[in-house]
């Protein structure tokens, strides 16, 4: 008697939990966009525009749900079963990881124009009022007494672009070799007092907590920080060389097909490439692909010499060489060399 009771009670508890979970899953007129940290404002604006446009063109009311976090953390969640219809992440390597596990086709990057990156960005310096440490280029960051703030490349997509931009500069110095590149990176990270887990954490540390002399940031994040924390208190310095950061977008096939949201999901991502989508991106300080719209914002987006991920042999190689366990970034932090 007593044993049966026990078992029944436990079963009831488990079933109750499961029922609670399934009730929420079956809402077809909703999309889940799993994105990285600095796109919050962008997608807040864009979702509003898309919902209105979709209502006009199809008569259907849709809801777009957002999830934001570090690009790597978000990738992990999608792999573990977070039901993302679309992913809009910080770098192609993260979506590649999803494709490798069969969540979407491996040719995802050819399914949309421009490497499936509707907008681009680059890495710039954010400095304090009057640029007291006179920071003009990457070489100035390793001077004694300069404190550099960047997030952790292990957890933040933006920080990986930071490292690539730094390497791009080191690589263009006279007499550059793999050793001098590593030495520069070592010197650079010696100046870093805090490694936050995400780009947003670093901006907060720099702007709000008052730590450091220069923040290595996404261009869009640097502009947003000035808007949020005071245009007069912070200035943007564009280095001589940076990197062309291409944050990619993709429909997650396995989820969209199962939930029957493919049409909606594809239309959603396509809308990023329309004049409206591009304009919203530009107003949120992402560089638009559309030349006509880019022309309207030239004052915000100065021309910088930019390396691309291809210069580093693509993400697979870059990831393995620099960011994997035992890679360049780990070596830079190993003492005794």
């Amino acid at each position: 008697m007593s044993h049966r009771l026990t078992r029944r009670g436990a079963l009831g508890a488990v079933l109750g939990m499961v029922a609670g979970g399934t009730a929420r899953a079956a809402d077809a007129a909703a999309l889940l966009n799993v994105s990285y940290d600095p796109t919050r404002e962008l997608y807040r604006d864009f979702n509003k525009a898309f919902v209105a446009q979709w209502k006009k063109s199809s008569g259907q009311t849709v809801a777009i749900n957002q999830s934001h976090g570090g690009s790597g953390a978000q990738t992990r969640s999608v792999l573990d079963g977070l039901q993302a219809d679309v992913v809009t992440l910080a770098l192609a390597a993260d979506i590649d990881a999803l494709a490798r596990r069969g969540l979407l086709a491996t040719d995802w990057q050819t399914r949309l124009p421009n490497n499936a990156s509707p907008y681009t960005s680059t890495i710039v310096f954010l400095v304090r009022k009057g640029n007291p440490k006179q920071i003009a280029d990457w070489g100035d960051l390793t001077k004694p007494g300069v404190e550099v703030i960047t997030p952790n490349p292990k957890t933040s997509g933006g920080a990986r672009w930071n490292v690539l931009a730094a390497l791009a500069w080191a690589r263009r110095q006279p007499g550059a070799t793999a050793e001098t590149e590593e030495a520069y990176l070592r010197a650079l990270f010696r100046q870093v007092p805090v490694l936050d887990t995400g780009a947003r954490g670093s901006t907060t540390t720099f702007a709000r907590r008052g730590l450091g002399d220069v923040l290595l940031a996404w261009e869009n994040e640097a502009h947003l920080a000035r808007k949020e924390f005071g245009e007069t208190d912070f200035a943007i310095v564009t280095p001589s060389v940076s990197v062309l950061a291409e944050p990619p977008v993709a429909v997650v096939d396995s989820v969209a097909d199962k939930r029957g949201t493919r049409t909606l999901a594809e239309a959603y991502l396509r809308h990023l490439y329309t004049a409206e989508g591009q304009d919203i991106a530009a107003r949120n300080f992402y560089r638009p692909r559309d030349a006509a719209i880019a022309a309207r914002h030239t004052s915000v987006f100065p021309t910088i010499a930019m390396a691309t991920i291809e210069d580093f042999g693509g993400w697979d190689k870059a990831q393995a060489a620099y960011f994997a366990d035992g890679g360049l970034f780990d070596r830079v932090f190993t003492p005794g060399k």
């Binding site: 939990m17 499961v18 609670g20 979970g21 573990d80």
Partner: peptide
């Protein structure tokens, strides 16, 4: 059945 990333 969704357990992680949901209420359960």
């Amino acid at each position: 059945v969704r357990i992680v990333f949901a209420l359960p």
